[in-house]
């Protein structure tokens, strides 16, 4: 029962955070582009804009293309959303504050987060639209290519901490400059690889060939409208926020920070937002690259680099420089 209540609270909190992180991104992008961004809905500075957007999407007509594969088409948003929400299950937001601090927490996160591709492909296939189909094909190519370096980069802190339990990884980062991003050499490279792989796995510019609105209009979700579109959008941002939380946890020391313990979750959120803004900063400064170039970056550069990095980490830990208990 308690688990149910915690899950309910957590889900709603995630949705709220996701809604407001979209506002943050819009404001951030607007500043980069010398604009103001949302302003009038919820004066000043558009504080109610996410709520207004959600309400608007609820009121929109739900269009189902006549020739779509109805079951697949209608199920896709849910199949997509589910793993994007499930990844939050094992994240502890403070010592003891989380749904389930599994001893294989990182593995669970990585395994479940990779499932989003199923929903993506279902959406692209079920829409019966050529843009969507092409986008779904690209999705499979890209996400599979980038999940590997993503996992290898995420495994570096795991090896350093000697545990897959998320709370244990945070505990291993205690002390001045104890965060794994400060670990000489390995830490910075792994964090860099993690951020790059995150951008690609979340299909954000410059790796957003799935959406590619100048080529494929809106990619796999071109036929979706109303609430189904909102679910896909929610899933996408939830996944990104989840990955940001994981990044903050693995590399930036999770809830560790100065001040009393109850500030922990706030520190954690701040660090996650920092990772998110890093991704957003890249997004609004680069142009999109081509599908073949994206795959080349993954297979020729990022994957070998992360494998070597992981191996090096293994040697370092074997030599007795690990942080594990």
């Amino acid at each position: 029962m308690t688990h149910l209540i915690v899950a309910f609270v957590l889900l709603n909190a995630i949705i709220l955070v996701v809604a407001y992180i979209t506002l943050l991104e819009r404001k951030f992008a607007a500043r980069m582009q010398s604009r103001i961004g949302p302003y009038y809905v919820g004066w000043p500075h558009g504080w109610l804009q996410p709520i207004a957007d959600a309400l608007k999407l609820m009121l929109k007509e739900d269009v189902v293309p006549t020739l779509s594969d109805r079951w697949v088409y209608n199920l896709a948003p849910l199949v997509f959303l589910l793993p994007c929400m499930l990844i939050f299950a094992t994240i502890p937001f403070a010592p003891g504050l989380g749904l389930a601090d599994l001893n294989i927490g990182v593995l669970f996160f990585l395994a479940v987060s990779a499932l989003e591709i199923v929903g993506l492909f279902m959406g692209g296939w079920g829409s019966n639209n050529k843009y969507a189909l092409l986008s779904a094909m690209r999705a499979v190519n890209q996400i599979i290519s980038y999940d590997l370096p993503f996992i290898f980069a995420a495994l570096v802190p795991v090896v350093l901490a000697g545990s897959m339990q998320m709370s244990a990884i945070v505990v291993a980062q205690q002390g001045l400059f104890g965060w794994f991003v400060f670990y000489p050499g390995i830490g910075q490279l792994a964090f860099l690889a993690y951020v790059i792989a995150t951008i690609a796995a979340e299909n954000r510019v410059p790796f957003d060939i799935l959406e590619a609105e100048s080529e494929l209009v809106a990619g796999f979700r071109v036929e979706y409208s109303g609430m189904k579109f909102a679910l896909i959008q929610l899933g996408e941002y939830a996944h990104l926020v989840g990955t940001s939380f994981l990044g903050a946890l693995l590399f930036l020391g999770g809830w560790l920070g100065p001040g009393p313990t109850w500030l922990g979750p706030l520190w954690f959120l701040l660090k996650a937002v920092l990772v998110f803004l890093l991704v957003t900063w890249v997004r609004w400064s680069f142009v999109r690259i081509r599908v073949d170039q994206i795959l080349a970056i993954s297979w020729k550069l990022l994957l070998p680099a992360t494998v070597i990095l992981l191996l090096a980490t293994g040697f370092v830990v074997a030599a007795g420089f690990g942080r594990g208990a």
Binding site: V205, D208, E211, E213, S214, R283, V287
Partner: peptide
């Protein structure tokens, strides 16, 4: 090249 939601 960069998309309506990107560096472009």
């Amino acid at each position: 090249m960069g998309g309506a939601l990107g560096g472009g």
